[in-house]
Design a protein around this nucleic acid. Sequence first.
DNA 1: TAGATTGTTAATCGATTAACAATC
DNA 2: TAGATTGTTAATCGATTAACAATC
Lengths: 213, 213
Amino acid sequence: MQEKGISQAVVGRLPRYLRYLGELKENGVERVSSQELSTLMNVTASQIRQDFNNFGGFGQQGYGYNVDYLYTEMSKILGLDREYHFVIIGAGNLGRALGNYLNFERRGFIFRGIFDKDPELVGKEVRGEKIRLINELEDFLKSNKIDIAVLTIPKTGAVGLVDMLVNNGIRAIWNFAHVDLNVPEGVQVENVHLSDSLMKLSYNISRYDREKQ
Amino acid sequence: MQEKGISQAVVGRLPRYLRYLGELKENGVERVSSQELSTLMNVTASQIRQDFNNFGGFGQQGYGYNVDYLYTEMSKILGLDREYHFVIIGAGNLGRALGNYLNFERRGFIFRGIFDKDPELVGKEVRGEKIRLINELEDFLKSNKIDIAVLTIPKTGAVGLVDMLVNNGIRAIWNFAHVDLNVPEGVQVENVHLSDSLMKLSYNISRYDREKQ
DNA sequence: TAGATTGTTAATCGATTAACAATC
DNA sequence: TAGATTGTTAATCGATTAACAATC
């Protein structure tokens, strides 16, 4: 399984494949061809076969793909066959919402703690975890194996925190702060810039208006 | 200004340009060359010039780009020179968090109401708006001009709601439900699939591990 | 005027699609 | 065996980068 050179374009499509395969599985479908999946997902069959073949031959000529098997393999590829422990940094509305979101747990993402700089929030509970003061975070990371830091703090705070996180074992940052983070090689960053997403929407609305005159 | 054929790849970069231009503006920088911006943003100067030129010539040979002017033009292109009224459908943790997020307001996105199917939530307030029962939504849309529906409900509910929304004037859907929505031509959809985003992170973590052995 | 930097065309690179031989 | 469908190579398409003439 040679994974060098898998583009992020391909990676970005994998979760969607997993979702559709999961639905097929739930509906008791045993096998699926790239053509059927193509119709269902509205992408070309060719792309599906190419994408899957980046990771090895999961299908069988004349038969297609076994849904159960493909689902399992896809889960492994996505790294969902293990657990990830995460902390949330920033106990504002968004941070608390993410802490309360149970579906992540089902996928192996374990909520381990939530931190904020505001002393007023300390002690309040988010899904069984008391909010802690952010200056306890470093000690916490030293004594707990945490993989992922979820950043739901304003951008000014976020940038200054990265080095400490990385130096204390954080492997990946799920970044909701509206800023680009610089991390050392080997540390993964996934940005969720909600306001950018909303601007894409307003762009598309107003472009549509401009084009219609 | 011929906007046909602007790819979503370009559109996806526009909010980031706006962010950097905004920062330059705040720092009192008057002009910037594609080369300087290139260094700052870690993309090629060539791409920057190509991207800008999709929308017309904003620069001046030998000088570069006027930050203020470019920022204003970029805002207009993104459709940020007008207001958008939105409702949130689903008053769970995420829905309430988005309702409370004030920064959207600054950009012209006006929070007009929040709906849920759970009668227990009805009457609670989210940033000055009482949560309403979802079966009041249709009437609400008929008597208020709402542009954007933010969907923060489970996928089963989301799919069944789309037609009603579109038939009552909704122009765009900001979709946090984990499902692909089918909308008529001219209605914009922007998906935020948080669990997909998290899976990309776990993919990249575990790929890194696999590659190191 | 000379230097700087855009706007734009041409070249390259990468991603998607088409085609088909291999094979179940 | 015949039909179906993959895995994979080749062709196409689109996006990115390089180059440079135009021009401030």
